[in-house]
Nucleic acid binder design. Sequence first.
DNA 1: GTTAATTTTGTGGACGTACACGGAAATTTT
DNA 2: AAAATTTCCGTGTACGTCCACAAAATTAAC
Lengths: 355, 355
Amino acid sequence: MAKQVKIKDIAQMAGVSVGTVDRVLHNRGNVSEKSLKAIEQVLSEVGYKYNIHTSAISLRKEYKIAIAIPTAIQGEYWGAIQDGIMHAINEYSDVKLDCRFFFYNQFDIYSCRSSFASIIDQRPEAVIIGPTFKSETQRLCAELDANRIPYVFVDAVIEGTSPVASYSTDQFTCGRLLGRLLRISAPKDAEFAIMSSQRIGNERSNNSLERRKGFIGYFRDNGMEKNVKETSFSVFDPAESEKKVMRFLKENPGIKGMAVMNSRGYILAEILKANNVQDISLVSFDLTLNNIKGIEDGNISAILCQRPELQGFHALKSLIKSLLYNQEAETVHHIMPIDIIVKENLPYYREFFEM
Amino acid sequence: MAKQVKIKDIAQMAGVSVGTVDRVLHNRGNVSEKSLKAIEQVLSEVGYKYNIHTSAISLRKEYKIAIAIPTAIQGEYWGAIQDGIMHAINEYSDVKLDCRFFFYNQFDIYSCRSSFASIIDQRPEAVIIGPTFKSETQRLCAELDANRIPYVFVDAVIEGTSPVASYSTDQFTCGRLLGRLLRISAPKDAEFAIMSSQRIGNERSNNSLERRKGFIGYFRDNGMEKNVKETSFSVFDPAESEKKVMRFLKENPGIKGMAVMNSRGYILAEILKANNVQDISLVSFDLTLNNIKGIEDGNISAILCQRPELQGFHALKSLIKSLLYNQEAETVHHIMPIDIIVKENLPYYREFFEM
DNA sequence: GTTAATTTTGTGGACGTACACGGAAATTTT
DNA sequence: AAAATTTCCGTGTACGTCCACAAAATTAAC
């Protein structure tokens, strides 16, 4: 248990007052070259570490934090991220925070634009971004960079930006993992289907595309590329979807597994249930309420999940750290674990958290 | 963002001084019935929450904490628990802690007794217990209860004790989950083997027994009780084990999956690898270095894991909370999630943590 | 009823950092 | 060289809690 080095100690060693050390630590300027050198010398020798507690206490400032994520629905993916953020707000209730959520519709680029514009207007001191549209996000980040406003990414990373940290998943590997899960639970010659959920404008998210690549890649590596089929279903027209899916299964009787590259697996689960289909594994993403029900009912074999609460929690945590000790640190990209959730271990993923 | 209520506020509302409120909050006694009533009244109304930061600063006391767990080896299960504890020590470096480890041999009841005896001698202010022997642990806990020394359990809970908290896993469900993993990845009529690792005196740990029960129960529930075989292998005599296992497989050609109820799966992985056995799934427990290698090599299909670092981390965290704010709270039993780790998601379980 | 012992209560200093303020030193201007 | 700026620096106070110590109130003892 190494003894804490205090600012006072540093001041003494460098032959200056605590005020000057403080100025250096917070690069507030107004320090002579000589003092700066002396203090930096001492700092490099002793390795000063902030005392987060005292630091937090004496900080009177209230930080404005903007959170730009797709509309969060309780019990769904972005809802879980929001839960994690709320949890962090609570945990760090001693740091004065003014957190505002700027939700946007992830399928409407205009709503994203206007949301991001409001953020700029708001002049926050830090931002959490759950990115969807690449160039919109890049534009926002450029603006934030110009104003030296720190930001972090959750769920995904956008290239050409310089966040303080990011929390995301290796979606390609998710796809491979999904491939493996389906393959091992089916006979050697079985076929598998990628079930795309159709949306307005038929756009597919980047995450889904990556997952799909990984999935196909996995079967290609195992010489089973031909065993992979693809079809789609609608999120909004269940009856039509049901007809389409059942027709597809009839035409492809070899199908023993279905992969859904987003959280819409529960829709297929309903269809399988209604038609009493027993021998097809279904794997989807995200522990949403609907998918939880699908697992409990036994219609979804497994769910892949990427700790959204933890992402939200750590996102805010790292921003707070950055605000308090604004050393210009390197970006840290955190890749979240991919949890495999089936009927048996489901219950224990609901309580536990944090961390 | 609700405004923080301070001790001063409470004091004012209750018509007493901060000192008195402090005494009540830490039940240090020496408070008149009248003041106590008044303060408790106010507390129940406003819902006071400690400011962890200021609390940590002004705490000058150094707490002696004893940690009684089986010998921890780096890269194995108890080593991971130790890592988690060390991490918490680091995270709470502002709270003065004097942590001492009292390791014991989990296969030697005498070493456990002498370890526990040293703890009593040591007179610690709080204890973390990784229990193995039931009555020894009960005796220790009785002693601790008598001295009002708080303690927490990691890995497992012993009945007839009253810890501050516990962090453990539902081993029975682990066994069921293992059953499911093996079953789905094999043909309908496949057979499965429970591979017990033999030890000195042939005792089997409680955890293993529970897992075994769950495993067998799973197959019974699916009308496949007859498909489960059992055999054993030695941890210390690899050559003998290899002979025995291969003979067993020859005699039971229907075996498509092997279950190891502890962390010794890697031994079988080596055997399968050496004999070029390809079509048998092997599932074991705990992300030890050996097992990680087994997964990477493809000889272990999956590992079930119960977040040992998180257990250790939270164990110490909850003890610290209990020491700082020793309100006589109810015991909280935390059941850890059961992570399923396969080749694809393995890399991401090594970095991430905390929380 | 007075004194002693005990219980109860309030006060004030300490923890380590942030930051405002005013004074000292260095620099520029006149 | 003195005055006016500007730059630099040290001091002091605040943050909310803990806890030691002393003062006050209550109870016990005589």
